[in-house]
Computed example of a mutant assay.
Amino acid sequence: MRPEDVNLVAIGQRRVAGLRRDEVARLAGISQEYYIRLEQGRDHQPSDQVLRALARALRLGSDGVEYMHRLVRIQSGGVRLQDSEELAAAVDEGLRSMLAQWPSTPAMIVDRNLGIRMSNESARSELPGRWEPGSNAALVVFGDDWKRCDLQWERSARTTAAALRYSSDPGDPELHDLVGVLSLRDATFRGLWGNHLAAPPVVTEVDLVTSDGEESSFTQQAFQVPGDRGLVLIVLHRGQLGQAARSA
């Protein structure tokens, strides 16, 4: 955000285009000293009132607000509930059965770091790249095979980078390794990650050249899996929803 975006007058030389700390603090109605403590991580438990004020000052959307609240919960050391082994096994069995019953609809289950936990035969055979369990959706999307076949790759790249940041734990060593690999491999990823995009992959359009050489338009939808493991079901389907979105 620039000063003129929030009706502020830009005074003096600026090293960066965005708002200064004192400007953000003023817009949020808090002291600059307190805002600096928040930036530096010296205050781990800001009140909901302060978070709402910062969200208004930075004009965050609903996804940005939810992401900010989740980061605060992680930073403040909130207890994370774990699914029981029995519940996890029952959920996984149901998911495997469901994915297997979609022979012409690519579908997969990913974790917080977009690691692929499950995928059906349609995902593995139709989609470019390696959609096998143990692979990673972000590595696939930023890989050469997917880039060659995705007719709107820039859109997919933005969506994937935003979903990875939104769902992951910033303190997770596995995330750090993944981001390091992607940053070394791909300049586009470095730029997107540096922009701090954060949004869940709810509904988006994906236009691909599939393994049979045909151009296909999919509607990609994401659904939270019940439980506390941060799993998401991603389905790519052809149908009226995709046709309506393309004609709108």
Results as ranks from 00 to 15, higher is better:
residue 201 P to N: 13
residue 184 L to Y: 08
residue 40 Q to Y: 03
residue 97 S to Y: 03
residue 35 Y to E: 08
residue 12 G to M: 01
residue 18 G to A: 05
residue 208 L to A: 05
residue 71 L to F: 04
residue 106 P to T: 14
residue 199 A to Y: 08
residue 109 I to M: 08
residue 61 G to H: 05
residue 167 S to E: 13
residue 183 S to K: 03
residue 191 G to C: 02
residue 48 D to N: 12
residue 201 P to M: 14
residue 239 G to A: 06
residue 130 R to Q: 13
residue 245 A to E: 11
residue 155 R to P: 05
residue 185 R to T: 08
residue 145 D to W: 02
residue 233 L to C: 11
residue 73 R to P: 03
residue 91 V to G: 10
residue 197 L to D: 06
residue 80 R to W: 07
residue 228 D to M: 13
residue 231 L to F: 09
residue 226 P to C: 02
residue 46 P to Q: 03
residue 202 V to H: 06
residue 232 V to C: 10
residue 22 D to P: 03
residue 19 L to N: 06
residue 149 C to N: 09
residue 89 A to K: 09
residue 222 A to V: 06
residue 156 S to W: 05
residue 192 L to S: 03
residue 130 R to D: 14
residue 39 E to D: 10
residue 62 S to C: 07
residue 178 L to K: 07
residue 175 L to N: 02
residue 233 L to Y: 04
residue 171 G to S: 12
residue 35 Y to D: 11
residue 97 S to C: 11
residue 67 Y to I: 07
residue 213 G to C: 08
residue 161 A to T: 07
residue 174 E to P: 02
residue 203 V to D: 10
residue 116 I to P: 01
residue 178 L to E: 02
residue 121 E to N: 13
residue 144 D to Y: 00
residue 229 R to H: 10
residue 234 I to Q: 08
residue 179 V to A: 10
residue 164 L to W: 05
residue 141 V to E: 02
residue 132 E to N: 07
residue 70 R to N: 09
residue 136 N to Y: 08
residue 158 R to T: 13
residue 179 V to Q: 04
residue 144 D to C: 00
residue 66 E to A: 15
residue 192 L to H: 04
residue 221 Q to E: 11
